[in-house]
C-alpha cells in the first residue's frame, strides 16, 4: 500500500468529514445546553442554499473572496433559522423532536422557493468560484507528513480542527461552558444561582444553527457546483450520529466525523485491496450505515447524554 494511496484516502476522508464535524460541534452546543437538535440537517440546507446562491450573484464583482463571504452569510442564515427551533423548544416548550423535524422539512421548501424566485429554477445557478484546495505553505515541505496532510487539501478542514479546539476550550475551560453544560444536566440548579436557563439555551441553539449553516456552506461550496434540493441529503443526520458516537465531546466528534468520512471513502477504495476484491461492491456501500448502527448499539448503553436534554425547562416544576 503506497504512501500516495494513503494520502489520497486521508485527504478525501477529511473532505468528507469536514461538514460532519462542524455540524456535530454545533449539535454539542445545543444538546449540552439541554435542547435536542434534530434540525441540524435543515439548518445545513439553509446555510448551503444561502452560500450557494450568493456566489453566482456576486462572484464577478467580488472575486476570490466571494466563497468566504458566502459561507459567513450561510453561517448567519443557519443561526437565524435556528431561532425558530429555539423559540418553539425553549419559550413555547414544544416537542423538540417535532420542531426539529419540521425545520428539516421546511428547509428544502424554503430554499427551493427562493431559488425559483431568484434563478427561475429549482436549484441555484452553477458557481465558478467555490472553495478550492490549497497547498499549505511551509508545512507541505515536512517529509512524509507534508504530502500526507498538507498537499491539495481544503482549508475548511483546518477550520474544522480549529473549531474542535475552540469548542473544547469554551465548553470545558470557561465559566460560560460550565453554565451551558449545567443547563443540560441540571437546569434548576443553574436557575437557582441566578443564571438564566432560557438565555443559555438560546445561545446553545443559536450556536448550533450557526455551525450547521457553516457546515452546509462548506459542503456545497467544496463538493459541488450548485445547490439543489439534494445537496445535503442526510449529512445532518450523520452529524447527529457522530455527536452520539463522539459522546457529546468535541474530540469524540472529531474522531467520529473522520471515522464516518473514512468509511465512506473506503467504499470507493475497497477494490484497490486485493484481498477485498472478491467481496461485492454493494457490501461496501452498506458498510458506513452498518457501522453507524453497530456504533449505536455498542455505545448507546454507556452513552453520556446530558441528563436534561430534550426536556423543556419549566420553572414552576422546580
Amino acid at each position: 500500500m503506497s504512501l500516495a494511496l494513503i494520502s489520497s484516502m486521508l485527504i478525501l476522508s477529511f473532505n468528507y468529514a469536514t461538514p460532519i464535524i462542524v455540524a456535530a460541534l454545533g449539535g454539542i452546543y445545543a444538546e449540552r445546553s439541554g435542547v435536542t437538535n434534530i434540525g441540524i440537517e435543515g439548518m445545513m440546507v439553509i446555510g448551503a442554499f444561502v452560500a450557494a446562491a450568493f456566489v453566482p450573484l456576486f462572484e464577478s464583482q467580488l472575486g476570490g473572496v466571494t466563497p468566504w463571504i458566502a459561507i459567513v452569510l450561510g453561517t448567519i442564515a443557519g443561526g437565524i433559522y435556528s431561532l425558530i427551533h429555539a423559540y418553539i423548544s425553549i419559550d413555547l416548550r414544544g416537542d423538540q423532536i417535532i420542531s426539529g423535524t419540521a425545520l428539516n422539512m421546511l428547509s428544502v421548501g424554503i430554499a427551493v422557493y427562493f431559488t425559483q424566485i431568484i434563478f427561475g429554477m429549482q436549484r441555484t445557478q452553477t458557481f465558478n468560484r467555490g472553495i478550492s484546495k490549497v497547498n499549505v505553505p511551509i508545512l507541505k515541505d515536512i517529509p512524509i507528513l507534508g504530502d500526507l496532510l498538507f498537499m491539495r487539501i481544503y482549508p475548511t478542514f483546518f477550520l474544522s480542527l480549529a473549531l474542535v479546539v475552540i469548542t473544547w476550550f469554551v465548553l470545558f475551560k470557561t465559566r460560560f461552558g460550565l453554565r451551558l453544560r449545567a443547563c443540560g444536566e441540571h437546569p434548576s440548579a443553574v436557575d437557582s444561582v441566578g443564571v438564566s436557563v432560557r438565555k443559555m439555551r438560546y445561545i446553545g441553539v443559536i450556536l448550533s444553527g450557526l455551525l450547521a449553516g457553516l457546515a452546509g456552506g462548506i459542503m456545497v461550496l467544496s463538493q459541488s457546483t450548485q445547490f439543489t434540493a439534494f445537496s445535503i441529503h442526510g449529512v445532518g443526520f450523520i452529524a447527529l450520529a457522530s455527536l452520539i458516537f463522539g459522546r457529546w465531546n468535541p474530540w469524540g466528534v472529531l474522531g467520529a466525523g473522520i471515522f464516518f468520512g473514512f468509511s465512506q471513502i473506503f467504499t470507493v477504495y475497497a477494490n484497490d485491496f486485493a484481498f477485498l476484491r472478491s467481496v461485492p461492491n454493494e457490501f461496501f456501500f452498506m458498510m458506513p450505515y452498518v457501522f453507524t448502527i453497530l456504533a449505536m448499539l455498542l455505545f448507546s448503553r454507556r452513552s453520556v447524554a446530558p441528563k436534561a436534554v430534550g426536556e423543556p425547562y419549566d420553572v414552576s416544576k422546580r
Partner: peptide
C-alpha cells in the same frame, strides 16, 4: 444526487493517473 461521491470517485481516478473523465451521473 451525491456530489461528494462523484468528487471522491473523480479524485481517486485523477490520483491514479486518469487524464480525462466522462461522467454520466447527473448531480
Amino acid at each position: 444526487d451525491k456530489p461528494e461521491e462523484g468528487q471522491t470517485l473523480a479524485s481517486k481516478m485523477y490520483d491514479d493517473g486518469v487524464y480525462v473523465i466522462y461522467h454520466a451521473a447527473g448531480g
